[in-house]
Nucleic acid binder design. Structure first.
Length: 782
RNA sequence: GCCGGGGUGGCGAAACGGCAGACGCGGCCGACUUAAAAUCGGCUCCCCGUGAGGGGGUCGGGGUUCGAAUCCCCGCCUCGGCACCA
């Protein structure tokens, strides 16, 4: 009686055996090319959900394929273990964040093991442990020494619910990335990393193969803009000048007013007494707005004149100065020239407040205008495209792009302006007013030394266990007296500690370096030799949600490490793949409130991990994601059952010499008759070698859905032909089928290979099958 | 508004410019079974036809080509990103 396929029995058994044999423990070796496969480490949220399986299970299949192809694969695993939810859980339930986090890690680790992956658990990392965060602190000090970590008072994003500041990257549509509370502005002293120093370099993607859209998102985020910065003088105040930035210096003759951001430092100085009241009221109103309100593009323009006037350096004209919240303090110089004829926003503002509009770039033919006529019909809207310059003195008649260059030169000669480049990217704000994170290793000497870094030999600054972590708007550590009070390492006088903790994106910016040897206990926190062997990551796999956060920070971080002489490459992740999102059976994003959450453990118990892995691969292209179909999974399960039957139940036929009666023609087997062995063999062989060829190609290109479809077709054909093929052809096909299935369904493949067919353990140490182009070729082409 | 991805059966999806719908789900019919499950076999884009066969069909409209789901142009819809960044 043939055995039944029982994944519940097979899977844990093989998982234990692989673990006991250390099958997936990776070490540097010179006889094989290295391949660092990496999945984005999960946050310690508590449970492994389907999305994790989609990432970790499918990524594992690809890594297994690379192993079989002869690569020395490193595929580590760890946990992103600091962060707000642990603290919030502690506040809600009274469990200490450490306890909560470690409990979740234990649980998630067990669940991850049920995937049956090649994850090398000897390399496991948890970022909340001192053995990890010590090196966050060490690296922070290096950044500080290099002038790349600095403290500044700046307007920052404040989440009123989470009671902490956020990096720009963590504000999505004006809301906190975590809790979606509208963010407000605050002026605070905070620690920043100087990512802007690397803005240009981060725009260079030539060393990496990433999805186009991620590159685009990063490019947009960095927002490089080339233009001219020039000074506008203030009427009656020879001591003052207003710097403005523009990309359209060709339009300077069209300036009809100047705008300052409401918070601009010159506003108080310049406001005329009679406007003081109105200005103050406007500033107050602007300050109270949330980011969402302020940045809404469909909002009506608002503003007030401050009663002062500016002199246009191009033509000496006197124009009014306004403040308006459509000008942002944090971009450019926080002040603009307004040219309503050539800018949509200024045009709208002019209409609202009845300000003059003067055409300086004639649209020409496009709008039926004639630049040389001297007649300029009223513009129905701002004309922003290039045209012919008019009303611009000596520059009249020039095409406007050329005019830009000429005026830029003219300003430069007169020393009132220069070409400059602006970025939208802001420096990375890394302070957090929360408990569960890495303490920033800085001290404030109360006597005379000011800001003093904690000496390296005093690291780590240990996060105290006993803190009151209710959010108050101030770091919880600030109320912990024995933590706060310290001694100045320079003068020995009293000092206080920095009580803010680091953004958790600090942790994720280098964890992949720590993985190469997580026990390494010397600076810089990772083994340089092992890192030199394994890095950079060959294939990074994870969600697209980190496109401008983690992925940008890590690229910055590694460049800094390179400049510190700690690594010798610039890009951490050579190739990136973003898998899609698995939706609930109803087609919506899974959420507890919707009640459409699929629990992978349930399906693992019912049908096995191999089935769940294969189903996730089969559902569609990996980058597309899609709804989990409760019924669809049975098709994949049936397929694995069929493979089981093919390999166990159907006894191979004895090899027979083909006698070739009537063979040679391409005739179909007649209905009800049997094919000659050699003809059936030929058909099976051809299909097999075509399958190997196609499956290999699909594997290389992450097309797991069609890869499995082809294995299904092959197994269907084998079933049809099993009564007519020779044992030899059959056996070749069964072995190759199992080898090709091994990455996707590692347990069943191992069981059939090792136990049922008695072939050498382990199938996962075998070479990927090769195809013979001659056998794969079609006999005839029409 | 700008920049990308996409639009193909009842559903998830396939298809070097060359037989549209592989593979799977669901559905229908049949075999096995006392019965059901499981398993196995057949059918399953639409229309006409018992059949062989014929006609139509890949969001809509044009175009290139011997030949277009695929390439080009216009439009519609949809998903994602960015968006008062001067």
């Amino acid at each position: 009686m043939p055995r039944k396929y029982e994944p519940q029995e097979i899977e844990p058994r093989w998982q234990r055996r692989w673990e006991d044999d250390g099958l997936y423990v990776s070490t540097p070796r010179s006889d094989k090319p290295k391949y660092y496969a990496l999945v984005m480490y999960p946050y310690t949220s508590g449970d492994l959900h389907v999305g994790h399986w989609y990432n970790f299970g499918v990524a594992d299949a690809h890594a297994r394929y690379k192993r079989m192809q002869g690569f020395n694969v490193l595929m580590p695993f760890g946990f992103d273990a600091f962060g707000l939810p642990a603290e919030n859980a502690a506040i809600d339930s009274g469990v200490h964040p450490f306890t909560w986090t470690m409990r979740n890690i234990e649980r998630m680790e067990q669940q991850t093991r049920t995937i049956g992956g090649v994850y090398d658990w000897s390399k496991e990392v948890a970022t909340c442990l001192p053995e990890y965060y010590t090196w966050n602190q060490w690296l922070f000090l290096k950044f500080y020494e290099r002038g790349l970590a600095y403290r500044a008072k700046a307007p920052v994003n404040w989440c009123p619910k989470d009671q902490t500041v956020l990096a720009n990257e963590q504000v999505i549509d004006g809301r906190c990335e975590r809790c979606e509370t509208p963010v407000v502005r605050r002026d605070l002293e905070q620690w920043f990393f100087k990512i802007t120093a690397y803005a240009d370099e981060l725009l260079d993607f030539s060393q990496i193969e990433w999805p186009e859209r991620v590159e685009t998102m990063q490019r947009n985020w960095i927002g490089r803009s080339e233009g001219v910065e020039f000074r506008i003088s203030v009427d009656g105040r020879p001591d003052l000048e207003i710097p403005v930035y523009t990309r359209r210096v060709d339009t300077v003759f069209g300036i009809t007013w100047v705008v300052l951001a409401p918070e601009h430092p010159l506003v108080d100085e310049l406001t005329a007494p009679e406007q003081r009241e109105a200005v103050r009221a406007y500033q107050e109103q602007a300050r109270r707005q949330t980011e969402i309100e302020r940045l809404a593009t469909d909002k009506e323009k608002t503003g007030v004149p401050i009663g002062a006037f500016a002199i246009n350096p191009a033509n000496g004209e006197r124009v009014p100065i306004w403040i308006a919240d459509y000008v942002l303090l944090t971009y450019g110089t926080g002040a603009i020239m307004a040219v309503p004829a050539s800018d949509e926003r200024d045009f709208e503002f002019a209409q609202k407040f009845g300000l003059p509009i003067r055409e300086v770039v004639c649209p020409g033919e496009a709008w039926g205008h004639d630049p040389s006529s001297g007649v300029h019909p009223e513009l129905p809207e701002a004309y922003v495209a290039p045209g012919t310059m008019v009303n611009s003195a000596q520059f009249d008649g020039l095409p406007s792009p050329e005019g830009s260059e000429r005026i830029a030169d003219w300003f430069a000669e007169r020393r009132i302006g220069r070409r400059t480049i602006n970025y939208r990217l802001r420096d990375w704000l890394i302070s957090r007013q929360r408990y569960w994170g890495t303490p920033i290793p800085m001290l404030y000497c109360e006597r005379s030394c000011g800001v003093v870094p904690v000496p390296e030999e005093d690291l780590p600054v240990v996060l105290p266990e006993d803190a009151e972590f209710k959010p108050t708007g101030e770091s919880p550590l600030a109320t912990h007296a024995s933590f706060v009070n310290a001694t100045c390492p320079r003068c020995g006088g009293p000092a206080t500690r920095e009580t803010d903790t680091m953004d958790t994106f600090m942790d994720s910016s280098w964890y992949f370096l720590r993985y190469v040897d997580p026990k390494y206990d010397r600076p810089p926190g990772f083994d340089p030799d092992k890192a030199a062997y394994w890095m950079p990551v060959d294939q990074y796999m994870g969600g697209v949600e980190h496109a401008v956060m983690h992925l940008l920070y890590a690229r910055f971080f590694i460049r800094v490490l390179r400049d510190l002489g700690l690594v010798n490459f610039s890009e951490p992740f050579t190739r990136l793949y973003n898998q899609g999102i698995i939706l609930g059976p109803d087609g919506y994003r899974m959420s507890k409130s919707r009640g459409n959450v699929v629990n992978p453990d349930e399906y693992v118990q019912k049908m096995g991990a191999d089935t769940v892995r294969c189903y996730l691969m089969f559902i569609g292209p990996w980058d597309a994601g899609g709804p989990w179909n409760t019924q669809g999974i049975s098709g994949v399960h049936k397929f694995l059952n069929r493979v089981w039957t093919l390999a166990t139940d159907l006894t191979p036929k004895p090899p027979l010499p083909s006698l070739g009666e009537g063979a040679g023609g391409e005739g179909q087997a007649s209905a009800g008759g049997t094919m000659a062995f050699n003809e059936a063999d030929a058909r099976l062989r051809r299909a097999l070698h075509q399958t190997i060829r196609d499956v290999t190609d699909d594997m290389d290109k992450f097309r797991f859905n069609t890869m499995l479809a082809k294995l299904m077709s092959l197994s269907n054909l084998m079933q049809d032909l099993q009564v007519s093929v020779s044992g030899e052809a059959w056996s070749e096909a069964v072995r190759a089928l199992l080898l090709m299935l091994a990455p996707s369904a590692p347990h069943i493949a191992e069981e059939l290979w090792t136990v049922e067919l008695g072939l050498p353990y382990s199938i996962h140490a075998q070479a990927w099958p090769k195809w013979d182009p001659g056998l794969a070729a079609e006999d005839e082409l029409t």
